[in-house]
Simulated assay, not measured.
Amino acid sequence: MITMVKGAPLVIKLLEGTQGIGVVLAETNQAAESVIQAFMGMKANIMVQEYIKEARGADIRCFVIGDKVVASMKRQAADGEFRSNLHRGGTASVIRITPEERSTAIRAAKAMGLRVAGVDLLRSNHGPVIMEVNSSPGLQGIENATGKDIAGMIIEHIERNAMPARKAPPKPKG
């Protein structure tokens, strides 16, 4: 796993973690091996990711509904922290995403079979990198940052796409 992400530094995540809990930055291969062994010894499901230094503790949350990014925000980690989660002291602000970032977020949600998703991207030297596709993203942070009613947009999407079209009752003959 360490070799697959080109070695340390790298990020190790518990798959069951939320809000940045269970996310570790391993700065050396030896530290990575120790953390992986510890998590595996606890029979935890983990994922190993390349550390994108040039992101400088920032990520982009794209909120996808259907085949559209309806909102996006930049999350910036607190000083001395690499995790940009708002629950870890990060801040959120509105951001304009590039067409490539928009396309990447939509394709990521579709690849996971999701009609509603929070897609977290990092800006890397080689283009947008998907960090996570969240099937149950929180709404509070993105609604506060963007001023958009994301919950209302989700409800509208469900009403448009999940409800069968109503047919008029048959006209009586005669």
Score class of each variant (00 low, 15 high):
L10F: 00
V11G: 03
V11W: 03
V11R: 02
I12G: 01
I12F: 08
E16I: 12
G17I: 10
G22A: 04
V23E: 11
V23G: 12
V23F: 06
V24C: 06
L25C: 07
E27I: 04
T28P: 00
Q30C: 02
Q30K: 13
Q30P: 03
A31L: 11
A31G: 08
A31S: 01
A31K: 09
A32Q: 01
A32N: 01
E33T: 13
V35M: 09
V35K: 14
I36D: 09
A38G: 05
A38P: 02
F39Q: 08
M40I: 03
G41R: 13
G41I: 01
G41M: 08
K43D: 11
A44L: 04
N45P: 02
M47Q: 01
M47E: 02
V48D: 04
V48H: 00
V48N: 03
E50Q: 07
E50D: 00
Y51L: 06
Y51R: 07
K53A: 10
K53H: 10
E54D: 09
R56P: 12
A58R: 13
I60E: 03
R61V: 11
C62P: 03
F63T: 08
F63E: 05
F63M: 13
I65S: 06
G66V: 13
G66Q: 01
A71C: 10
A71H: 12
S72D: 11
M73R: 00
R75D: 00
Q76L: 12
A77D: 11
A78F: 12
A78T: 04
D79N: 15
G80C: 14
G80A: 12
E81H: 14
F82D: 02
S84M: 05
H87D: 12
H87A: 08
H87Q: 03
R88K: 10
G89Y: 05
G89F: 02
T91M: 15
A92V: 09
A92R: 09
A92P: 12
S93D: 04
V94Q: 04
I95K: 11
I95H: 08
I95F: 03
R96G: 04
T98W: 04
T98D: 12
T98S: 15
T98P: 15
P99F: 14
E101G: 12
E101H: 08
R102H: 11
T104K: 15
A105P: 06
I106N: 08
R107S: 14
A109S: 09
A109F: 07
K110T: 13
M112E: 10
R115Q: 15
V119M: 07
L121C: 01
R123Y: 04
H126C: 11
I130V: 15
I130G: 13
M131L: 13
E132H: 07
V133F: 02
N134S: 13
N134G: 10
N134P: 01
S135G: 13
S136H: 03
S136G: 15
S136P: 05
Q140G: 07
I142S: 06
N144G: 09
N144L: 02
